[in-house]
């Protein structure tokens, strides 16, 4: 057949070429600079690498003192992804299955709030979550209010992150739900399975690529977002991202910031390499 003329690996590499070129030039080469910074001596600054080479930054970065921060980062990101999944799934399912010709409109409606400036949205949440804010007052009606409001709590951070990343969960989930063949659910019911059993045995596996994609797109950027924790969180909201950011800003310690970034990248590469074949089609 004519289609077979181009070998598969060649076709694949050709299709990947533009993306590969782009990322090689605008990601990998700049990252090489970061690797270089990470071995420099302190007082390295923008475009200024101070010698001698040293691995001190790596030794500092691996200090166990940073472990709680790493843990906090993962907690924020994990809970955010979970919250996005819990909120996003009903929405995606509804739009895909029940919205009929209004699907596009409803999906667009998910994105419309994001025309508002990020900072304005965060400030709005600050106003709503504050002790005098609407949320606290409404909760006060049912006796659930909290003195001083919910601002500056971990809950506020997770809420803010969930708000910011929800579309990144809803859209992939929708894409999966839309393709999902609902007749499988019928078949499952006909075979005597209940709702819960059907959800876990039929629906979830069916939309799994969407769940994976959405979780990845929420989890990883949420782990890196430090502005939201900074604005909504309390005193102890340092995340891995904010520690790295601090090392670059204020010019505090470029090698340390770079070393932490390099370690983070290595960690992800290792995880991706080890993940085996499961989900390989998606990630």
């Amino acid at each position: 057949m004519a289609r077979r003329r181009v070998p598969r690996w060649l076709a694949a590499n050709l299709l990947l070429l533009p993306a590969g070129f782009w990322l090689a030039v605008f990601l990998l080469v700049p990252l090489a600079l970061v690797v270089e910074y990470s071995f420099a001596t302190r007082d390295t600054g923008p475009l200024r690498v101070v010698l001698p080479w040293t691995t001190r930054a790596y030794r500092t970065a691996l200090d166990p003192a940073f472990l709680p921060i790493f843990g906090r980062t993962l907690t924020y990101a994990g809970l955010t992804a979970l919250a996005c999944l819990l909120l996003g799934f009903p929405l995606a399912w509804f739009i895909a299955r029940h919205a009929g010709r209004f699907r596009t409109a409803l999906l667009a409606a998910v994105l419309v709030p994001f025309w508002a400036s990020y900072l304005a949205r965060i400030y709005a949440w600050k106003a709503l979550l504050d002790g005098e804010g609407l949320v606290n007052r409404l909760l006060g009606l049912v006796g659930l209010d909290r003195d001083g409001g919910f601002l500056l709590t971990d809950g506020a951070v997770i809420l803010g992150l969930t708000y910011g990343f929800l579309p990144f969960m809803v859209l992939p989930l929708y894409v999966a739900c839309e393709r999902f063949d609902y007749r499988l659910v019928e078949a499952s019911y006909d075979l005597g399975h209940g709702r819960v059993s059907t959800f876990f045995r039929v629906v979830l596996p069916g939309v799994w690529p969407g769940v994976l994609a959405g979780s990845l797109l929420v989890l990883v950027p949420a782990a890196g977002d430090f502005v939201t924790p900074k604005l909504l969180g309390g005193v102890d909201q340092s995340t891995f991202g904010s520690v790295i950011d601090d090392q670059f800003r204020g010019g505090n310690n470029w090698p340390l910031g770079s070393a932490m970034a390099v370690l983070l990248l290595l960690l992800v590469v290792v995880v991706l390499m080890l993940r085996g074949r499961r989900g390989e089609d998606v990630l």
Binding site: W9, L14, L23, A261
Partner: peptide, 28 residues
Amino acid sequence: FGLRRTFRGRGLWTVVLTLPLVVPEVVM
């Protein structure tokens, strides 16, 4: 589409294409 079917090097491509998600913003 390029990553659709398995071929030698797909794992590496996947890693490269995932990296931008991980790089901290200030570093980038």
